[in-house]
Write a protein that binds this DNA or RNA. Structure first.
Length: 186
DNA sequence: TGAGTGATTGACT
DNA sequence: GTCAATCACTCAT
């Protein structure tokens, strides 16, 4: 694996342009990561800020694992654990550009608009067919769910994060500049 | 043991 | 543009 996951902020930048691949009985879906957010245990907005819980224990494990959590009663979000064991860091994947299995994604999402398939944290989880059974999966191994190195985007925009109530001023959101698949362009 | 909160989305006015 | 849906976990009695 050529992706460095030592530091959440650095990893958030490195993951842009990488490919997320999921193999399921229905087929393979994959997408290029175009939007990420970094979270650390020092961040009041992070799930790890208040310490380890049953829900987020994977975040305190070794880097390169999948942290999938449930929120608002109906939505899942997908994170990649970063940093040394016990540091509680991670990178939230907010948006993908669909590559393989687009028809399957459309079927899962129940719509035909490609840009609407994966332009949000919970949307991409649904489109990729990721479930809580993928919680704790090793993404660097050649398992069903994995991250593959990709081409670094030529231009990356760094900005403030979205959809959280605290520490909103931290510029820890990254996305591929000009890519139409990011969750929020304006 | 119980109430409050949230890294969101989709449907409705 | 506004609002409801609904689960896991935290914080407070």
């Amino acid at each position: 694996m050529d992706i460095k996951l030592d530091d959440a902020l650095e990893a958030a930048k490195q993951l842009l342009g990488c490919k997320l691949v999921h193999q399921t009985p229905e087929g393979i879906t994959s997408g290029t990561i175009v939007e990420t957010e970094a979270y650390t245990s020092e961040d009041p907005a992070s799930h790890t800020f208040r310490g380890q819980t049953k829900r987020n224990k994977v975040m305190f494990g070794p880097a390169g694992y999948a942290y999938i959590y449930f929120t608002y009663g109906m939505h899942y979000c997908f994170n990649i654990v970063t940093g040394p064991i016990g540091s509680g860091q991670g990178v939230l994947i907010r948006a993908l550009e669909p590559v393989d299995g687009i028809e399957l994604m459309k079927a899962r999402r129940g719509m035909n608009d490609e840009r609407q398939l994966t332009n949000g944290p919970a949307k991409l989880v649904q489109a990729m067919g990721i479930t809580k059974s993928d919680y704790g999966a090793n993404l660097l191994d050649s398992g069903k769910l994995r991250v593959e190195p990709g081409i670094k985007p030529k231009k990356v925009t760094q900005t403030t994060r979205i959809g959280i109530g605290q520490a909103v001023d931290h510029p820890w959101r990254f996305y591929t500049t000009g890519n139409p698949y990011v969750s929020k362009l304006s």
